[in-house]
């Protein structure tokens, strides 16, 4: 057990080092920044899908609400950037509370329902009549607080936090009870686990995570339109990265994101015209030949994957 713990700590440490020194090796900092964004979101999806079985197609909704929560905090309340990030996480928490009845759904119904919820959030935020508050279709300009370096550090901390949380779930009683609920909610309830309370807690935790990430993203890019932060492909990326690496593990989303997002950018920069085609074929091949993710190659052989 202690050895497994060590492996976990090692992964977090490596991750931290990788992204801490990354920008000094490779100067395109925003590419590395966005890789961290997707990795953190992939961990969010991992927590929700890997441990509770809910696949959130509309995960981007929390991301966008976090970004807008932070933007409103800066533009209307004139708070400093760090406070704005926290308020961004808080607004995602509120959105998560309002949307928690979605957890009554399951399977494809939940996925579609959460997708619809994120589209509603997008349509409300970008609506003309909320222009004095959100900027509506005119978008947001936070040039006043623009700070590439600090936002990068904050993002790094968020990523480490998210990864550590997955590590905790992976090795704690709480994580075990989540998996028990995922496999059989009725027996879990009988075994004395508070199914509803536990699920809602995880749901809100992932909402806050996406909100904080979204807020930091908003801070980092500082000028954006609603469709930039409510872009459905953000959800899709996070989900695909998680599934590619393998859910319910710490390492899966990390490796999935590095490989696929790296590939995404490599193709995007070298042969962009075939990009969508290659990506689509890759995703299909993944589902057909590696339905349980890269990590299943190891676990199938009985190797423990953190």
């Amino acid at each position: 057990m202690r050895k497994r713990m060590l492996a976990n700590v090692l992964i977090i440490l490596l991750l931290f080092l990788l992204f801490a020194v990354g920008p000094s090796i490779y100067q395109n900092q925003s590419l590395i920044f966005q890789m961290m964004v997707f990795m953190a979101l992939a961990q969010g999806v991992n927590i929700l899908y890997g441990f509770t079985g809910y696949l959130p197609f509309g995960y981007v909704g929390f991301f966008g609400i976090g970004a807008y929560g932070a933007a409103i905090a800066v533009n209307l309340l004139h708070v400093p950037a760090l406070v704005a990030v926290i308020l961004g996480g808080f607004s995602a928490l509120l959105a998560g509370l309002v949307l928690s009845p979605l957890l009554r759904l399951s399977g494809a119904y939940f996925s579609i329902g959460s997708l619809a919820a994120s589209e509603i959030l997008y349509n409300v935020v970008s609506n003309d009549s909320l222009q004095p508050i959100t900027g509506g279709p005119y978008g947001v300009n936070l040039a006043g607080i623009f700070d590439e370096q600090t936002s990068y550090v904050v993002m790094l901390l968020l990523l480490v936090l998210a990864t550590a949380f997955v590590t905790y779930l992976r090795s704690s009683r709480f994580g075990m009870s989540l998996i028990a609920i995922r496999e059989d909610p009725v027996s879990a309830e009988m075994a004395g686990i508070h199914v509803v309370r536990t699920r809602v807690f995880v749901w809100l935790a992932t909402a806050v995570l996406a909100g904080l990430v979204g807020a930091t993203y908003a801070w980092h890019i500082s000028v954006f339109y609603p469709n930039t932060v409510f872009d459905l492909s953000v959800s899709i990326f996070a989900i695909v990265f998680t599934l590619f690496g393998g859910g319910t593990t710490v390492l899966g989303p990390v490796v999935g994101t590095i490989l696929l997002y790296g590939l995404y950018n490599a193709i995007g920069i070298s042969s962009p015209q075939y990009f969508q085609l290659i990506y689509g074929v890759l995703i299909m091949a993944l589902v057909l030949f590696l339905p349980n993710g890269l990590m299943s190659l190891l676990t199938r052989r009985g190797i423990y994957v953190p």
Partner: peptide, 18 residues
């Protein structure tokens, strides 16, 4: 059910790009 979402998303990307 969940994997079909991803698989057919991939297919939709392929169709769209072609």
């Amino acid at each position: 059910e969940m994997l079909s979402l991803i698989l057919f998303f991939g297919l939709s990307q392929v169709i769209e790009s072609l």
